[in-house]
Design a protein around this nucleic acid. Structure first.
Lengths: 104, 104
DNA sequence: TTGACGAGTAGGAAGTTACCTACATAATAT
DNA sequence: ATATTATGTAGGTAACTTCCTACTCGTCAA
């Protein structure tokens, strides 16, 4: 079953949220830690994290009064699947171009 | 040089625009042809096409009074590249899971 | 048990988006 | 020449997004 919903594309549309995902590549982090990388108040970062959570691009688990956010790559794998038809299209165009060049 | 800008992610955030791209997989189409697939007025579809054009996800060439829109897969290939670090992350997690299972 | 800390939520302002209708422009057909 | 067709643009409105500050809630430490 694919988890690639509108939410995922919408979540990725924000540079802030893409940067959050990139930061989480290094492992789980707390909200304060993540927020320190942005020129933005912490509650706004919290809101961005909520968008990522709703899209299931990150998960959260509580440790004491902290919350560790963790990357969930699954929707991104689904995004890769979504790209496949376009990749095929692209390869065909490259091939067609190569064929033309061979005839010159 | 990568053409993967904010514009590309923003363009993909709309279901209408993703459907436009999907339709264009079958080959170039005119605006009226494309618009006929949506429950929306033609000028709105034109505006969506402009967003896709600005993101270089489609190109346009005029044929008489028509304009043929064509898929440009390049930004999507760049999107694939953007995904690579996440794919690696995902593979490592799958591997870790497998290792755990093997020890059971 | 009280104060400080980490984090989420509420409510609001400003900016952006996505529709619409009306109009403009260029090309074809009569 | 004129009407028709294909398309883009202008301008407006409603909805959504993104930021903010103020506040709440739970946890930890003194």
């Amino acid at each position: 079953m694919s988890t690639l919903t509108d939410d995922v594309f919408a979540a990725l549309a924000s540079p802030v949220r893409r940067e959050l995902l990139r930061l989480l590549l290094d492992g789980p982090r707390t909200v304060n830690d993540l927020a320190s990388h942005f020129d933005m108040r912490r509650p706004s970062v919290s809101e961005h994290l909520k968008v990522l959570r709703d899209a299931e691009l990150v998960s959260e688990h509580r440790v004491g009064r902290e919350r560790r956010y963790q990357l969930e790559a699954r929707p991104l794998v689904d995004l890769q699947d979504w790209l496949h038809p376009y990749e095929r299209f692209w390869r065909e165009r490259v091939k067609a171009l190569r064929d033309v060049l061979e005839d010159m």
